[in-house]
Design a protein around this nucleic acid. Structure first.
Lengths: 141, 141, 141, 141
DNA sequence: GTGGTCTAGACCACT
DNA sequence: GTGGTCTAGACCACG
């Protein structure tokens, strides 16, 4: 399963859920049209308050990651159906990168070392994703 | 000035201060030995309670970013005085990079586009920093 | 109860709380998973401000002695959950021992007498702890 | 010299001085009758406020470690001249040992390991002291 | 109901 | 005058 919730973490549980769903989507584990568990199913399985799960789903819907079809369930949105590109969010990425640079400095890592680390991480991410997709294809052949 | 505080942001004021100081240090705007405003000066200037500022300073001291000289004020610490390297924090950087990849995907940005953006951001950061240092040197000549 | 607070002591109240909790844990009076009083309960019982208690709890959490489960309360953490070993802290123990030797000298106690006293104290501590554990076990049988 | 003062340490400077003097005495580096620098000499040499040094001397006098002979200077007290043995102070040693046990527990050191560490530390202390005394004697022969 | 944050204002220890 | 601590009382985020 793509979800691990740690109730002891300082980051709110509902945000952990949001993040996990977005991660699964980004990795290609969840794909457009896939159905998510209902709020109550997920709440029961992970022993979470259902209000918490509901809040996570609301947030995901707000971000257009999922869509709720009335009385049919919630599904991963079709990415292409959302043509809106939001400069505000790109801004957010810039801030994240800046934070990365700041934190790196305080761990005595130079910008170029960070760049190195970043490139490696991205390459790993990409190859892992491709491996996953190849594996998926083979299974379906 | 290197500090902007937004009291209505969801991120706690004391953390905003912490982040701002770390940013100024990473950028080279604040240097080892520089004196920070006193708790009460800073509190007055930004209309913050002095306790909030004190809490930020304590957090910064805990992270070895600043040092308190008893009743003389607080100063940016020498980076060299901290031989401790914390693998746990490097781990944190990895997580940040992963988050970056995930968020990028949800703004329809591919890993390679993100890489591009990252490299540009780092280069900008570095050249800005060098420009600042050159300017500083020239002023002191 | 395992807590005695003296508001007129020169040592800060929040540190007294921190120390008392650590002592209770070391003695086995508080065990992994045990729930601590809520911030406000403890504050009310000892006529302390809740902020002071909160600060003590935060410090304890930072030292991995307790863990906060969001809006469920705070609990003694599993010792096993903390694989981190800090040489810096062992250093601190050495300093404490040196202080002990120095203070002993000024009470006209020779190192060997101190050694005697130390061994006795440790043995008492251990037997007391074992007695407490045996008693605990018997009660649960 | 037997004094090192760290103005950045969280422990007050005057206490650092007190501790250093007591340490030098316990180690036999300073002996009964030895003359200490005057308040102003010491203040000048270590760039400390003379009030701070004065306070340290007061504290040392209060603890009978030194004695001030009016207009002749301050001297290390003759230990044997102070026949008073204070149970209150022995109590203090007990508390220190208890703290040691508590802190050891939170660094995952068992009481017996601590005992081991303690014995080693005491033996080192004693042999060092004897070596110093032998060296002293040889020099004076 | 839980802890977390903030303000306001007071007092203290240290230099 | 510096930071550190504490109280009192308020509001918020989370589950």
């Amino acid at each position: 399963m793509w979800l691990h919730v740690n109730p002891r973490s300082p980051v709110p549980v509902y945000q952990q859920i949001v993040h996990a769903v977005k991660e699964a989507v980004a990795k290609g584990i969840l794909k457009a049209g896939d159905r998510l568990p209902t709020v109550r199913e997920l709440a029961a399985e992970y022993v979470i308050n259902h209000n918490t799960v509901a809040r996570a789903y609301q947030e995901l819907e707000r971000e257009n990651v999922i869509q709720t079809l009335r009385s049919k369930g919630t599904f991963i949105s079709d990415a292409e159906s959302l043509p809106i590109i939001i400069p505000e969010k790109v801004e957010h990425l810039h801030d994240l990168i800046k934070t990365l640079l700041i934190e790196a400095h305080h761990v005595r890592m130079s910008p170029s070392e960070l760049k190195q680390m970043f490139v490696t991480a991205v390459d790993d991410w990409t190859t892992e994703k491709e491996a996953r997709e190849r594996h998926e294809r083979d299974r379906n052949v």
